[in-house]
Design a protein around this nucleic acid. Structure first.
Lengths: 255, 255
DNA sequence: TTAAAAACTGCAAAATACTGCAATATTGTT
DNA sequence: AACAATATTGCAGTATTTTGCAGTTTTTAA
């Protein structure tokens, strides 16, 4: 592991070693390098300063990170928007002329609303004001916003009134986002109120389509919404032959 | 799941992990992060403070929320004329702690929603998704969106369901825009459905405040909403001594 | 209203970073 | 090879950052 054959190591060699470690692990700790390279932490710190000056690494307190290490988000942009668009594109295949749909909120659902063709005639129930407004842009859609108390976090209508209004409808298809999705635990969420709403939505629908980023697969939250067996479709951005999908494929139709 | 390759985790890595969790689930709890990252909640709190300072998340009691999720609809920011802002400023005077309000839609109403102080505790019913979303930004407001079929041009909920839901409430004050306003003909509108909604809203309110640009005074539309005698307040951008106001002043309180 | 949870404050310990400096190593020149 | 000029390294002392803890205040929920 340590290339310390002749006791002393040139600065360039150390730099190369550090770069290699960073490429390997995306990060290095000064303390680790000091031990591995048998030099003082001061020297390591100077090395990291050099590499940072020439823009090869990103120095942080305690070590350094790969320069490509950046926050997985961009300001003013929806996280993983391309993936969500891919999900939206797939979801579109479930929409047919005259269908009656019930939808939740979330950015993925908004992406679907955005790409619904202008010539589709259908009825959309939704608990999300944002989705409703987006859907209302399509001339031929009937958009019904189910009322209730608007939650500040999720920006969807919740509470008893929403649940009881939901009980009065029965739709062909329900689009729902998932916060946690797992083979054994099924669909889970972290907010009790949200879970009540989702359950009510599922009760009001003949078929259920869950949309989820592939990243969320195998994650579990505190509250249970339903089992995987309740799903008719699972729509993700991953290819259906992706290894992470295989187990799900046996339980639910993957789109 | 947790990227804990090495025993210790650099601060920036924690930050990235937090951002990722927020992007994925829209919200995080300090307690969860503390457990997942194996650091004290104090550290998490400081992390969240840092991320909030640089505007990357929105900190709330107990955790943090995704910021990108919170402001998307501000994109279609309407630029209210000064006169509408003036009306909004005046309307604010009618709001008191604990009041229950019912509002319609329209840019003037949105302008009011925007300038409501953060420390006002009150309950707002509304038939406008946009107004509801704007109101939801105020932490202490309870916002109840009355459902119905979303009209494509006015972007308010209408139809039988909305009317019957309105019949079930009784509020202190109703804010309504006016399309036509005239001494003899009262408040008038051009859309039959809108008139039904407005009448239902008026029935559900103890006091009625009509907001209208001064230029709409003395104009008449086809359908009647109510007489001027039904108004408690008429809010315009004109000075109350303006010549065009004088006649109205005898019938209704001008603000 | 009270009780629990969460946030803030100040503080101290540990880890990390910086400064100047002397010892050592490297390089370039004759 | 000898020597000077330069660069690198480790060290000691000091400063800064990070973190957890205890006590207090604020917020939330019942």
């Amino acid at each position: 592991m340590i290339d310390n054959t002749n006791g002393s190591m040139l600065k360039k060699e150390r730099h190369a070693f550090i770069i290699r470690q960073i490429n390997l692990h995306n990060k290095v700790l000064s303390s680790d390098l000091s031990a591995q390279l048998q030099v003082s932490e001061d020297t390591i710190r100077r090395d990291l300063n050099n590499l940072a000056e020439s823009g090869e690494v990103q120095k942080v307190h305690g070590g350094a990170l790969s320069k490509s290490f950046h926050f997985p988000y961009q300001l003013n942009k929806v996280y993983a928007q391309d993936s969500k668009k891919e999900i939206a594109r797939k979801a579109l295949g479930l929409l047919k002329e005259g269908i009656v749909v019930l939808t939740g909120g979330g950015t993925t659902m908004i992406e679907i609303a955005r790409i619904i063709p202008d010539d589709l005639e259908a009825t959309f129930f939704t608990i999300s004001p944002l989705v409703a407004l987006e859907l209302a842009e399509r001339k031929l859609l009937t958009v019904i916003l189910i009322g209730g108390q608007l939650s500040k976090n999720a920006h969807i209508n919740m509470g008893a009134k929403t649940v009881s209004d939901l009980a009065e409808i029965k739709v062909d298809l329900c689009f729902l986002g998932a916060n946690g999705i797992d083979l054994n635990e099924g669909i889970t969420d972290s907010d009790w109120e949200v879970v009540q709403i989702k359950k009510a939505m599922i009760r009001s629908s003949r078929r259920l389509a869950i949309m989820s980023l592939g990243e969320k697969l195998d994650s579990v939250q505190k509250m249970k919404v339903c089992d995987l067996s309740a799903l008719d479709y699972l729509i993700t951005d991953r290819d259906e032959d992706h290894h992470s999908i295989l187990d799900y494929k046996r339980v639910v139709k993957i789109i």
